[in-house]
């Protein structure tokens, strides 16, 4: 039968042995991390972005690399998902993007700070995470639809990066605003232009934010929207 001193030996020996292996694996991990995390791409801006991330405790609502809180979206691939322009507009005034929804804090960041946060999130998105977050695997139909839309449309890049967060075209995109299929039959180009210039002026209290589009960009968007019949 096992004696007490044998039991103690099992405890001390096991602990020492596995601690040693753990330290050895850590040494190897530290050797591999610079390449896996792409240390070369860690610019000063990225590091400042991490400081903002820590100081504001964004992890108290969001997860990043799957760690943090479960109240707000996973941000590991957010730059990939939303694009830097959309994130910039969002961070200027988070509540304008999703009025009436779960609230993010209005931080009043400067443009430079927003640049740093985006640089940080962009760097995070390029870390080799062994495949996290995974592609949704029960969504083959939707993926098919996605491919065909991308193939036929020649829409403005800005529409893809910003407007699709709220609007769908051909079944793809957000559902927060109305789908824009056939919008040209409902709204003429002049009205579209006034709408995009300042939605609040046309319809006070509307949930569509003023995106402060430049004149050229607005013209490009109106021209394309007018083809959606």
């Amino acid at each position: 039968m096992l004696t007490k001193s044998q039991a103690r030996l099992f405890f001390i020996g096991g602990t020492a042995f596995f601690s040693l292996i753990f330290v050895m694996l850590t040494v190897d991990t530290l050797r591999q991390i610079p390449e896996r995390q792409n240390t070369k791409a860690m610019t000063a801006s990225v590091v400042r972005g991490k400081t903002i991330w820590d100081d504001r405790n964004c992890m108290g609502c969001h997860t990043i690399l799957g760690e943090g809180a479960y109240y707000a979206p996973e941000l590991t691939l957010v730059v990939n998902r939303r694009g830097p322009e959309w994130i910039r507009i969002f961070l200027r005034d988070p509540q304008a993007m999703y009025p009436g929804k779960r609230k993010m804090i209005q931080y009043d960041f400067s443009e430079e700070q927003i640049t740093d946060v985006i640089a940080f999130l962009d760097w995070i998105g390029k870390i080799d995470t062994n495949g996290f977050p995974p592609e949704p695997d029960l969504k083959p139909q939707v993926a098919l639809a996605k491919a065909s839309v991308a193939a036929v449309s020649d829409r403005p890049a800005y529409f893809d990066s910003v407007c699709t967060a709220c609007h769908a075209v051909a079944g793809q995109g957000g559902t927060f605003g109305p789908a824009l299929d056939g919008v040209a039959t409902r709204i003429d180009p002049v009205a579209l232009d006034t709408w995009l210039a300042d939605p609040q002026k046309v319809k006070p209290g509307t949930a569509m934010p003023n995106l402060e589009l430049s004149d050229e960009l607005r013209a490009e968007l109106v021209a394309w929207l007018s083809t959606l019949e």
Binding site: D28, T29, I33, L65, E67, D128, T129, N130, G131, F132
Partner: peptide, 8 residues
């Protein structure tokens, strides 16, 4: 350590 950038 699975998915935070550590080795496979």
């Amino acid at each position: 350590y699975y998915y935070i950038g550590a080795p496979e």
